[in-house]
Amino acid sequence: MSAMIGLRHLGKSFESKSGEIVKAVGDVSLTIEKGEFVCIVGPSGCGKSTILNMIAGFLPPTAGEVHVDGARVDRDVPASLGYIFQKDTVLPWYTVRQNVGLGLKFAGAARKDTDKKIDRLLRLAHLSNFAEAYPHQLSGGMRRRVALCMSLAVDPKILLLDEPFGALDTHTKTHLHSELLEIWRELGQTIVMITHDLDEAVTLASRVIVLSSPPSHILLEEVIDIPYPRDVFELRQSNQFTAHIQRVWKVLGNQFRAAA
């Protein structure tokens, strides 16, 4: 068994302000293998972020179980897990280098041991020239890459990405897609990414999961059989790409129509 993440009949209900129980996540069972790149798409409010938060141990499930790397997740953040938020999570009072080294500092690593690793990550993310810059001097896309490096510095086996490129323009986004695939190929983590951008999902993922409106369950698992390494610029013009988009959209579009 090389399952990295296992969701077993996962469910999450919230109590609304007026006291009713709202079921966000209905019943989701999913196994994600080591090294997979899975994208989760679905209508807004279907509990995509909630599922990610439960995998990370930020939120306890109200039904079912989450297993990460062979252990059950229960309130504690699994050790081998990185999480990139949609919001900016770079610390403005630290330089890029200090930010990337934050996790190593948390672990009590000595400075001389961390420098080499930080340099390597900055090179991988094309940030070498900005090591001593402060976040307010960087663009939005660069700050995303800093956040990614911060996560990668602690060697996560799993990366959870919650609409990490949502707020960026298409040009920056496409470049970051290419870099993310490069990094993934080099470091080989298991990636679970949430997005509302179907093109993004098919461009990156080896498997796309389509969720229903709440209470959510899995409607479709589409294996994207376009081989890696992928050229994110060429890819979009291929027939394979279009065929995948059409198949996923058939299911997802119905959800949108039903929700309207």
Binding site: F58, V77, A79, F85, T89, F106, V154
Partner: peptide, 17 residues
């Protein structure tokens, strides 16, 4: 923001850190 705190938790940060 809670996101920032959670992010630091994934980096291995303890409460005091």
């Amino acid at each position: 923001e809670q996101e920032l705190v959670n992010f630091c938790r994934t980096l291995g940060g303890r409460r005091s850190q």
